[in-house]
Design a protein around this nucleic acid. Structure first.
Lengths: 195, 195, 195, 195
DNA sequence: GATGAATGAGAATTCATTCAT
DNA sequence: GATGAATGAATTCTCATTCAT
């Protein structure tokens, strides 16, 4: 009956927080943010209704936290490959491969993020977070395409991003019926010769 | 003294329905479906709270009706150009031009439709409507690309669709800052030579 | 195009009023007062929503009017037989027979009246109407039973009324499965010997 | 500090449910089902508007639950006396006495149940519940009357039931002005001699 | 740290009633 | 006399959030 140590408490907290986030992500992705109630999340997570409020100030903050997590994973991947010490074509290929893998194995996260990107009320709250990143990656990719010899490197960034996101869009709708890998290679044909 | 004629009534009804739909589309696109209340729509439309229920069975049916409208406009355009008696390249170009115009001038509709396509709870209700159409257009486009000499015509359809939708996705997020026309031409470079 | 005569107008009015009352009675009896909407009544009656308000001040007054009608039919019958110039036993028998016929052939009216007699909110509005009548009939019947030689004639009135109403209660619930005529004869056995 | 125990919670829930049911019964009986709003019930029960929905799926289920309760009380009484190991006449007398007591002391329940039995929209929902019971009690009573020597025992059941229900009907309308006990004895005269 | 009973603001929906024609 | 589009108050129900334990 001795009081829990700090470490024990931290572990307990972490487990609870993770359970809540996992359940929430799952259900937000499945039913939408507004159509998922706190009660449903709590039930799915196997905790009480009120526990969420010990860790987040409300439903919105829970969402924010999930979004942040998803973006961090994505960031790590991109940053890793686009900053690697490799020829531009290689960097692009590796980053692209990694991104496709990421999306394949985290379909839930991605569906959720995409869905949210189109819900105007949520969008505004993400905007600040996203804008900086976006500019940063545009810069980064522009550098890569310049190195690959594109005149209008920034236009190429837009074009590349559109192809990738368009493919993901369709993949998310069709899932296993979508020829994801073939699409990736069709993109790649455009850049391969720059090798 | 005498009651209104049928024609008068029809006109009145039509005006009310239009006002409600317009207001709803505007606000759904702006704030999202779940975050827009009937009261808000009614106020925006300049009618009473209850009037919507004279014309639609509920908020959901109102949404359905708006979706249907949007899809009909789109359908008409595509069908017109892809079925025209022209060489395949011309058909594709004209259909593409028309679609870009459509999206440019109906940004609201498109944002709404796209947002909805990612809200899982709404998605299911659209699915039946959309699925048939999708297959139909895949067929139609496959024919066009075959005529243009593509070996893997269906893969080309997916690729083309991904590029177009990816571009629209980004356009919808960045609006006037997006180089929409340049992107269109970048797509077109791939097909022009097939002329 | 000459204006309608007064007589024509009166006929038109009467037809409309009758259609509305008939429809209302039918639906009140079938679905209950609160569960029947003006719109339903109007549709059933084949008239417009607003017409009712030309003849009645509202839904409640329509109900009152229907109740009054039903009670008048009943009154006429009872009064006729209980006031006839006949021996008491004959009067009772004839009034009883007539009442059973009345209920059999106007099941709707009766169900409605009974239902209303138990809806507290409606009850209060009927109370004034009913109370006077009740006392009047108790007097009348008491006279009859006294004439038949009952010591406690008023108790006999209560008892007789309870039997009759109890039988109707069950008849209304079971309808054609109820041995209505046999029940009537079982009551009668009590009074026959007083002949 | 620590959460409430299961027992504590159960007690709290039970108290709330009881408060809601009591208030609802009171007001349904007083104003009718449709004329009583959730808000009124909540106020009378001294709880919030939403609490009812923690325990019942809606207003209708609350009603169902109250009906069920009322029927269970009734059932217990009847079953107890009609199944007792006594001569038939005694059983009947005791069951009858108990029923009259029941109605006297639970006037609210009975008014409500009777009122509901005549509201067509509610009736359908009770029907299944009631029908089985009715047949069961008819059987039971038929046995009793057979034992008492009635040739047409089942007709006697109908007749007896009609008398009892007719008396209750009038009692519910006139309340303390009604000679309830005398009526009971008038019924009894018919059966006493079978002793 | 955790629970879950309770709250109450806000949303969708219904429908008696009005009134311009 | 009749119509039916429009109104808006009232009602049911949902659910994020609070808080005593």
């Amino acid at each position: 009956m001795s009081p829990r140590t700090k470490k024990q408490n931290a572990a307990i907290r972490e487990r609870s927080v993770a359970a809540i986030k996992d359940a929430a992500l799952e259900m937000f992705a499945k039913y939408g943010f507004h159509s998922t109630s706190i009660t449903q999340i709590a039930k799915e997570a196997g905790v009480s209704n009120g526990l969420m409020y010990n860790y987040f100030s409300g439903k919105e903050e829970l969402l924010q936290s999930i979004i942040q997590d998803a973006m961090e994973v994505n960031d790590a991947t991109w940053f890793k490959f686009l900053n690697a010490d490799l020829p531009a074509v290689e960097k692009l290929r590796k980053a692209m491969d990694a991104t496709f893998e990421l999306v394949k194995s985290n379909l839930h996260h991605w569906k959720l993020l995409t869905a949210l990107a189109f819900q105007p009320d949520v969008q505004q709250k993400m905007e600040a977070l996203v804008m900086d990143k976006k500019d940063f990656y545009i810069q980064l990719l522009t550098g890569v395409f310049e190195e690959m010899g594109f005149e209008e490197a920034q236009m190429e960034v837009f074009y590349f991003a559109a192809m990738v996101d368009g493919i993901f869009l369709h993949y998310m709708n069709m899932e296993e019926n979508y020829p994801l890998d073939q699409m990736k290679e069709m993109i790649w044909q455009r850049y391969e010769k720059k090798r």
